[in-house]
């Protein structure tokens, strides 16, 4: 069976990681390519089952992961589990205070701590009066490279930085629509390029001032 050169895009398509232009190009393609469509259906089914029943399918995986994390934490001493847990709790608390109790403060910058304990896929809705001028997360140590991602339905913007804050460029801000949900995520890499930690995707929306 000959491979279609578009096949590699299927995962990115299903996970909404393609730009609008690429997405439309690929959609037009699979409307014309029965082979790709068959594969999409198959993968979509597989991913659906994995997302739906993953907890039980991978129960033994998670135990293994945890023990691996422990070894990893020994190597990256600054990432010992206790501070991480407290960081996660603090993060939750900060979020609740800032966005739950006093939601109407203007120009508040969402602070978001990240840690390995952050649960993937969970989301906290932050409502901000304006587009946050700055995104901030907990610093994990020296020489860590962070990658920040902003998503709408798909990846809108990404940028690497060594700092623990980032501001959005104007051209991205103008693309963002009030009332629509966006989410952001931070991943941390060691100097060797190994992924150390990945935050969950956190949702945010902003209201227009008028």
């Amino acid at each position: 069976m000959k491979k279609c050169r578009h096949e590699d895009l299927i995962d990115d398509y299903l996970f909404n990681r393609l730009s609008t232009e690429k997405k439309e190009e690929f959609e037009e393609h699979f409307f014309n390519c029965p082979r790709c469509f068959e594969q999409i259906k198959e993968k979509n089914e597989l991913i659906s089952v994995i997302k739906d029943k993953g907890d039980s399918i991978f129960k033994d995986m998670r135990i293994e992961e945890e023990s691996k994390n422990r070894t990893r934490n020994k190597i990256f001493g600054f990432l010992s589990p206790k501070p991480l847990i407290s960081a996660a709790l603090t993060a939750a608390l900060v979020l609740i205070i800032i966005f739950g109790i006093i939601p109407n403060i203007t120009n508040e910058t969402p602070e978001f701590m990240m840690s390995d304990d952050a649960i993937r896929g969970s989301s906290i809705t932050l409502i901000s009066e304006a587009i946050p001028s700055e995104f901030r997360w907990e610093d994990l140590g020296n020489n860590i490279e962070y990658k920040v991602f902003i998503y709408n339905d798909e990846l809108l913007w990404e940028k690497s930085t060594q700092n623990n804050t980032i501001s959005l460029p104007e051209e991205i801000k103008t693309k963002m629509i009030p009332g629509k949900s966006y989410s952001w995520q931070v991943k941390a890499f060691s100097p060797e390029g190994t992924l150390i930690s990945s935050s969950s995707k956190v949702q945010f929306t902003w209201r227009k001032n008028n």
């Binding site: 979509n44 991913i47 659906s48 089952v49 029943k53 399918i57 339905d153």
Partner: peptide, 26 residues
């Protein structure tokens, strides 16, 4: 909003098939 992932509950038309797939995955 479009589904963040393929919707786990609705898109599995064939429940039995999904069950079986989950078992094989395990």
């Amino acid at each position: 909003e479009s589904d963040p992932f393929p919707d786990p509950h609705e898109q599995i038309e064939n429940k039995e098939r999904a069950e079986m797939l989950a078992k094989k995955l395990e």
